[in-house]
Design a binder for these strands. Structure first.
Length: 263
DNA sequence: GCAAAATGTCAAG
DNA sequence: TTGACCTTTTGCA
């Protein structure tokens, strides 16, 4: 479930469990064997996250991980489970274990290599002092639809398909309007909303974008599906106005929106 | 048992 | 714009 909130949560988690610890690093699957050998036996000095990219610092090297669509971490207290299946990375501290499977990227980077990677990323609403103006300026100068720009990691880092659909709904914005046709204040409000949503995602460990009054409309058991306004709800009634939520394929991804609330 | 889908990205055409 | 890639889970036979 990797949008930016997942990655920042992992950075925090790995900090708590492993920073300051000497770790044993291996790649049971073998695909990361060479990289693992470079950091095996070193102390994890710190962790970092930018958008959907996760970093571990070991001496003068970075472990860089991008989960992609399928990547997943698991962790726990020793004893560690026997390696099973396609286990790209396994990390053991004196007290805890960590497993990584299915990432798009798991590699060792030098400082300049990491710097180069970061130049391709726009501001991340979850970082300390994000360059909001860079985001605003970029959107205001583009003919591209706002729904496309939100998915562009060079424009804003950390937003994925769920947050895109949900923030546009919450702000009452059509995904198809060109970036340059927005008022600056509207874009600032959207940024601020993303800060709130992403932070709450880090805290909760999942994406919840609906206001409490828009959830659990049925009496009885709470339903996880209530967590979203439009994402994954094609053909179902909009929670606000009852119009059928629509979806279409844009650049290979499903885009969801309410044609009434997002004219 | 197998196909399809999934919160992502990149390169080729 | 399309396909390839990383892996697991879900849904349907």
């Amino acid at each position: 479930m990797p949008e930016g909130h997942t990655i920042h949560r992992l950075a925090r988690r790995h900090d708590q469990l492993f920073v300051g610890q000497r770790v044993e690093v291996s790649s049971p699957q073998g695909r990361f064997a060479e990289g693992a050998a470079l950091i095996d036996g070193q102390v994890l000095e710190r962790t970092d996250a930018w958008g959907k990219h996760l970093f571990h610092r070991y001496d003068d090297l970075w472990l860089h991980i991008h989960l992609g669509l399928y990547g997943k971490f698991r962790d726990g207290e020793l004893p560690a489970p026997e390696p099973q299946g396609a286990l790209r990375l396994r990390l053991l501290s004196p007290t805890h274990w960590l497993e990584l499977r299915g990432p798009t990227a798991c590699e060792i980077l030098t400082d300049p290599e990491r710097d180069h990677l970061l130049t391709r990323l726009g501001p991340d609403p979850l970082r300390k002092r994000p360059d909001i103006d860079a985001f605003i300026d970029r959107v205001l100068r583009s003919r591209a639809p706002i729904g496309t720009m939100l998915m562009d990691q060079a424009v804003i880092a950390g937003v994925g398909n769920v947050y895109r659909a949900e923030v546009l709904f919450r702000q009452g914005l059509s995904p198809f309007r060109p970036g340059r046709e927005h008022h600056e204040a509207v874009l600032r409000a959207m940024w601020e909303d993303l800060v709130v949503l992403l932070r709450s995602g880090v805290r909760a460990g999942r994406i919840i974008t609906t206001a409490p009054e828009d959830r659990e409309r049925r009496s009885g058991r709470a339903r996880r599906v209530d967590a979203h306004y439009v994402y994954g709800r094609a053909g179902q009634p909009c929670r606000r106005c009852g119009t059928e939520v629509e979806d279409t394929q844009v650049a290979g991804r499903r885009l969801f929106w309410c044609p009434t609330c997002q004219p």
